[in-house]
């Protein structure tokens, strides 16, 4: 089990919040409308089936994922139920299309949104902790929730059960709020490394 002190948990939350805040301002500037992004909750689960997301196993979700390597390694994912992803993209693009799947261009737009958020989260962690992280280009996938993590290309998670850090993210746009998730899928070793780095950083900063 992942054991984090309250302060460690809080530190990770704050790093993520900083990243998400930056992402929100980038997005807001791009779409020329206010975009607020908050992270109401962060949780750690050892099995995907324990997550809130897995409550609707057959729901189709749109996901943008980027793998990352560095002191800790894994895959970061922005996940929305497909309907929400439509709402999100269309309210960002300010168009109303009566189509119930994403067009190719909308899919690419969602990929960019995911890229901005995931980069910001990873960048914030990397920047504050002073450890460089390499990221891959984002990829898009559309699946049923239960198959979300199947045959993913996350390196380092092979053979070991991944541990998930799940962020519940909430977009607050002009018209509506759209809820999604950011998943960090790592193996136990990586998450322990992350905790170690946080501890070291806290120790250094606070003497």
């Amino acid at each position: 089990m992942i054991e984090l002190t309250e302060l460690e948990h809080d530190t990770i939350s704050e790093l993520i919040n900083i990243g998400v805040g930056r992402a929100a301002s980038s997005l807001s500037e791009m779409v020329e409308q206010p975009v607020e992004l908050t992270v109401p909750a962060i949780s750690f689960v050892e099995r995907f089936s324990d997550s809130e997301l897995a409550n609707a196993p057959t729901e189709v979700v749109s996901a943008v994922s980027q793998s990352f390597h560095g002191p800790f390694t894994g895959e970061a994912m922005l996940v929305f139920p497909e309907v929400r992803s439509l709402e999100l993209v269309r309210s960002l693009l300010k168009v109303d299309v009566p189509l119930d799947t994403l067009t190719d261009l909308e899919q690419e737009a969602l990929m960019e949104v995911g890229n901005i958020i995931l980069n910001a989260c990873l960048g914030s962690i990397s920047n504050v902790l002073g450890e460089p992280i390499n990221c891959s280009m984002p990829t898009f996938r559309k699946r049923e929730t239960r198959a979300l993590l199947d045959d993913d290309e996350t390196e380092g998670s092979e053979g070991t059960n991944p541990v998930l850090m799940i962020l519940h993210v909430q977009f607050m746009l002009r018209q509506n709020d759209i809820d999604g998730y950011v998943l960090f899928v790592m193996d136990l070793e990586s998450i322990q490394m992350l905790r170690e780095l946080v501890r070291r950083f806290l120790a250094n900063s606070l003497e």
Binding site: L15, I18, G19
Partner: peptide
């Protein structure tokens, strides 16, 4: 203190006479 540097928030802060420090 905020990571969110959206112009709208900055403008509001300025109007209220608040300084602005970007996070982190």
């Amino acid at each position: 203190l905020t990571a969110n540097i959206q112009q709208e928030i900055q403008n509001k802060a300025e109007r209220l006479g608040l300084d602005f420090i970007p996070k982190p």
